[in-house]
């Protein structure tokens, strides 16, 4: 059994502003990595395109647009713009079906 016996007991704590719930500890969110990795369309079956989506990362030193899911809140996904050197967060935008109907809260 490779799955950990215990659930992940904690994640992280900076403060992110969920467009729905407001400002919360990072700990309420699940990190999902680089938001620039876009899945090829469902019709696309190019191995190279899928490989790039799954494995290639710019891993920038500076502003990073990344996905977080507010797992312990409204469960929305947000794209956070965060500086990987200072950890300063400069944006939290909603993504998903509701993104168009709501504005990023600041």
């Amino acid at each position: 059994m490779k799955r950990a016996v215990a659930p992940h007991l904690g994640t992280i704590k900076m403060r992110l502003t969920c467009p729905f719930c407001g400002e919360r500890d990072h700990q309420e969110f699940t990190y999902r990595g680089d938001a620039s990795a876009k899945r090829p369309a469902i019709e696309n079956d190019s191995i190279e395109d899928h490989r790039a989506y799954v494995f290639d990362r710019a891993n920038p030193d500076g502003d990073h647009r990344e996905l977080w899911n507010h797992t312990s809140g409204c469960r929305m996904h947000v794209v956070v713009t965060r500086n990987t050197t200072t950890h300063k967060v400069t944006g939290c935008e909603p993504v998903g079906p509701w993104a168009k109907t709501m504005k990023a809260r600041s």
Binding site: C21, E28, S72
Partner: peptide, 10 residues
């Protein structure tokens, strides 16, 4: 109301 968690339990 608010939605949050206690030790990862919503």
């Amino acid at each position: 109301s608010q939605v949050s968690h206690h030790h990862e339990i919503g």
